[in-house]
Design a protein around this nucleic acid. Sequence first.
DNA 1: AGGTTTTAGTTGAGCAATCAGCAATTGATT
DNA 2: AATCAATTGCTGATTGCTCAACTAAAACCT
Lengths: 177, 177
Amino acid sequence: MGRGPPDGAAVSSAAMNATPQPDDEAAARAANSRLVRDFGLLIKSATRLEQRIDGELRRECGISHTMLEVLIRLCRRPGEEISQRHLADDLTLTSGGTTRLLDRMEEAGLVHRIPSPADRRVTLVETTPRGSEVFLRAAAVHARLVEKYFVGPLTADDHRRLTAALDRIDTALRDDT
Amino acid sequence: MGRGPPDGAAVSSAAMNATPQPDDEAAARAANSRLVRDFGLLIKSATRLEQRIDGELRRECGISHTMLEVLIRLCRRPGEEISQRHLADDLTLTSGGTTRLLDRMEEAGLVHRIPSPADRRVTLVETTPRGSEVFLRAAAVHARLVEKYFVGPLTADDHRRLTAALDRIDTALRDDT
DNA sequence: AGGTTTTAGTTGAGCAATCAGCAATTGATT
DNA sequence: AATCAATTGCTGATTGCTCAACTAAAACCT
């Protein structure tokens, strides 16, 4: 009653399809490749993780995970000038997406925009006091979830190696184009 | 003219905000936490990776990464009965999302739906010959990218450990509700 | 100077997902 | 056998992004 197919029965329906294409075998081989599965796992677990934290943040703090990422960057070094462009690059968003994200955050009273005195094209983004406050609550939720799903299942060594590996992957991605 | 703030100047604008809230310091501390950054890296690198492969697949094969994930599952064990529900769970999609995803794939001639003879609520999904064919081309693109960004930057040992770690994370996520 | 090219941000249109609500079918309870 | 609960897939409305076209400002050439 385990996971594997019970050998014969399940295969019957597709066998009626016509001549068993030579493609089918090749496709089955490709689909069962180790790398394909591993890669899928990376994407899937990251997606699940983000969905989980996003849902929890929305429920408990009323902000999305993306908004939290913005607040993280704005709170990191208070007073540092951060432009929309900079945020867009850092968050892997387009400039248009960033515009509207900040529209929503501004409307929610979490940030405000200030035209840069040095360059009249750029607008700088700052947290409001309310932004910092919401961020603190969100950070607590975040910490709890990270603890549970990211730290809990891993040894300290695993964690260190995982981070290092991701960092190399991320660097490779950024360096290319 | 480097990256870091030139010490005094950048801080001035925020300092005018009012009384320096005690929150600000706490927020800065939280934002600089090691875990926050590591977690962000996981999400970000996975996102970038998926965007990259998604774009390449669309350009070269005309399908999205999500569609590829569907084809992988349908080709893995040809003849195995796979319901929409099963796909939805496996892809971390809602049933509504799956319905429309399969609508598009059916329209593109990649899959077709068959009502299950055993349970008239469920509809089964199969690849068409064209689906297998497209999958083969997509798998080649996929393999090239996985090789470049997932295998290239890592040693074999890193890769093995990374996968194991992700598997534990994914399991923890699934086991919890 | 003066004209071209690049960069920052906004906007309209479109896409792919979500959520919430629905009908049909099945299984369980009495 | 009749009801009630749970499950499957579909649909309208909404969300949050992308892409492409646009304006304004700055940087770069001769």
